[in-house]
Computed example of a mutant assay.
Amino acid sequence: MMTNLFSVFDPTSSIFKTPANWSSTLISVLMLPTMYWLIPSRYSSMWNKITSTLHKEFKTLLGSGGMNGSTIMFISVFSTIVFINFMGLFPYLFTSTSHLVFTLTMALPLWMCYMIYGWLNHTQHMLAHLVPQGTPPALMPFMVCIETISNMIRPGTLAVRLAANMIAGHLLLTLMGSTGPSLTYMMTTLLLFTQVALLMLESAVAIIQSYVFAVLSTLYSSEVN
């Protein structure tokens, strides 16, 4: 039962006997060039408003020490994740963000770039960050260990948070949908409305988790300046 239940997250989907494991990731990339049309559409205008709002917020989080153009990277991360999350809500499309191999691939290089840049260019600031201000001298060795561990698990928490949230909603939809054939007509109708409500909730989760991933990445990068 457990094997069949979690097998829906295995990257073995196919369309017309053609492997389509990561097709949702490629589809999201193909949708992006529509933003660069000479005549802006409603879709491109709405997306421009979203990206401009994110740019202002990320610029505020980075502060005056942030490098120019760094917000473009975090907006790109948000755009990639939100497109892939929405693609995973369609039937027979593989949700790549529900696997740690994808989320950790995004979180680990970002974190490594922050650490390498911070320790090479702001070594004293990085060392001072290991001991919070006002820490008693007797607790300083313990605080260094705690801050070092909390810093090292950041890419893991980013990856696990995104993957776990995407798995949880899809797993609940799969569990409820598998009970449909054994229910009565009235219960099936109620199940259908429940599934639609959960699908709307998953749409909100897809946006929220993309936003959380991008915001936390921005906050982590602001600490090394």
Rank of each mutant, 00 (worst) to 15 (best):
F102G: 05
L32W: 15
Y92F: 09
M186T: 11
F90T: 09
Y36T: 02
D10N: 08
I75R: 15
L32F: 15
Q124T: 15
H55E: 02
Y117W: 08
Y211R: 12
S45C: 04
L104A: 02
L171M: 15
V205P: 00
I84K: 04
T25H: 13
T80N: 07
L201C: 09
G180Y: 12
P155T: 00
Y43P: 05
A128Y: 04
Y211F: 14
W111D: 07
P137Q: 12
C113T: 09
M1C: 04
I81D: 00
L139I: 07
A168S: 12
G63T: 00
Y43R: 05
L198I: 12
Y117V: 15
T189M: 10
G177R: 11
S44G: 01
E147Q: 09
E223L: 03
N48T: 11
V144L: 06
T123E: 04
V29L: 14
G177K: 15
N48H: 10
F90G: 04
I84G: 01
K59P: 00
T34E: 03
L139K: 07
T3E: 14
L89F: 01
S13L: 14
M1K: 03
M187H: 08
M186F: 13
L216F: 15
M46H: 03
V144Y: 14
A168T: 05
P40L: 14
Q124L: 10
M200C: 08
T34H: 07
E57H: 14
V215N: 06
T34N: 04
T53H: 11
I207Q: 01
G169D: 07
S98R: 02
T157F: 13
W22N: 04
T103A: 05
Y185F: 07
L61P: 00
G63D: 01
L38E: 10
I167W: 13
T218C: 14
L26A: 06
L191F: 03
N165P: 01
W47N: 11
A107L: 06
L100S: 05
S24V: 03
S76M: 12
I15V: 13
S70W: 08
H129V: 02
E57I: 12
T194M: 11
K49H: 09
F94N: 06
M200G: 03
I39V: 06
L26V: 07
I81E: 00
N21G: 10
L127R: 14
A20G: 15
L26D: 04
P137H: 10
A197N: 08
A138M: 04
G63E: 01
H122P: 01
M166H: 09
H99M: 15
L100E: 08
W37L: 07
G118A: 06
K56E: 12
V101D: 15
T51A: 10
N68L: 07
F16A: 13
H125N: 15
I149G: 09
S44W: 02
K49Y: 08
M186G: 14
V215T: 12
N225R: 13
S203K: 04
K49D: 12
G118P: 01
W111I: 00
F102R: 04
M140S: 04
Q209A: 11
L173T: 09
T97L: 03
